[in-house]
């Protein structure tokens, strides 16, 4: 049975419970045959990468929990010169065998995610084990259990597939092509956002249609949410977009030539006026 994980960063409130839970689980505690104790400092088997985008006062924070991706095509496994030192468990976890590892750090250089750490005292390399010792007891990984916000969706790979499709979950740094087992929802992509309000009452306008079109004519459509906000992601940087906002009973509004010059571009308050 192989496990997988969806990390929904839209729900993350930057509380660091997952990061410290990992330390609580692993620092000083060995879980043979999967891991030596994590040292007191300088190893974050899961870290929180706070990616800040946008310009004051329209800021967007993407808190991205980064742990070992337990890649299906793991560069660390290929890079390791010692036979069977890095192996995969039937649960899908990529494990460094501490009894075989000699601390050569080849895996560290090979890993595109920066989630393997040297332990100079013991001459080994260490990383997240997907909490194999807990999986064997039928528990979820410590970081998953610690999250108060439901950021981590954890389960059997096959059971998560539908959800992954539905939520357009993506690996972090997809371009690295390592086929991770950890998928993300809400990763930072070039985004255009705005707040639609009634030009007279200045109140939020939910349900407005926002259509953006690039210079080649391909377009995307979104509805503004309960607070009048819209956000279109997965756009292209340095591209000019035409933004059209429509709402029944209102004159539609077109903003030409919106250049996506920063990764999170917010158009501020956009006023629509009644048709009469």
């Amino acid at each position: 049975m192989k496990y997988s994980m969806i990390v929904d960063i839209n729900r993350c409130s930057v509380c660091y419970a997952c990061v410290v839970a990992c330390k609580n689980e692993h620092v000083g505690n060995p879980y043979p045959p999967y891991s030596y104790p994590q040292p007191d400092r300088d190893q974050e088997w899961i870290r929180l990468m706070e990616e800040e985008k946008g310009k004051y006062p329209y800021v967007k924070l993407y808190p991205i929990p980064v742990l070992c991706m337990h890649c299906n095509e793991a560069p660390c496994m290929e890079a390791c010169p010692i036979p069977d030192c890095i192996y995969r468990t039937k649960e899908g976890a990529v494990i460094i065998d501490s009894t075989k590892c000699d601390g050569c750090k080849s895996c560290i250089s090979a890993c595109p995610y920066g989630v393997i750490f040297p332990n100079e005292d013991r001459n080994i390399c260490q990383k997240c084990t997907l909490c194999m010792h807990r999986l064997e007891q039928g528990k979820e990984p410590a970081c998953v259990e610690a999250c108060p916000s439901g950021v981590f969706l954890w389960g059997e790979e096959s059971g998560l597939e539908k959800e992954m499709k539905k939520r357009e979950a993506m690996p972090l740094y997809r371009e690295k092509g390592t086929k991770p087992r950890v998928y993300y929802v809400g990763l930072p992509t070039p985004t255009l956002a705005g707040h639609v309000i009634d030009g007279k009452s200045l109140m939020d306008m939910p349900g407005a249609d926002v259509i953006i079109t690039d210079t080649r004519g391909s377009s995307m459509r979104r509805k503004s949410n309960v607070a009048g906000n819209f956000s279109l992601d997965n756009l292209k940087m340095d591209t000019a977009y035409t933004v059209k906002i429509e709402h029944t009973g209102y004159l539609s509004k077109t903003i030409e030539n919106v250049l996506l010059d920063i990764e999170y571009k917010h158009l501020g308050d956009i006023k629509l006026f009644k048709a009469s």
Partner: peptide, 25 residues
Amino acid sequence: AGIKTVMVSPEFNDTAVVHADRWVP
């Protein structure tokens, strides 16, 4: 529950990161 939220604060704090539709600095 679909309830809209506002954060009034000098900082775009952790609550605002995930729980605010609008930040009023």
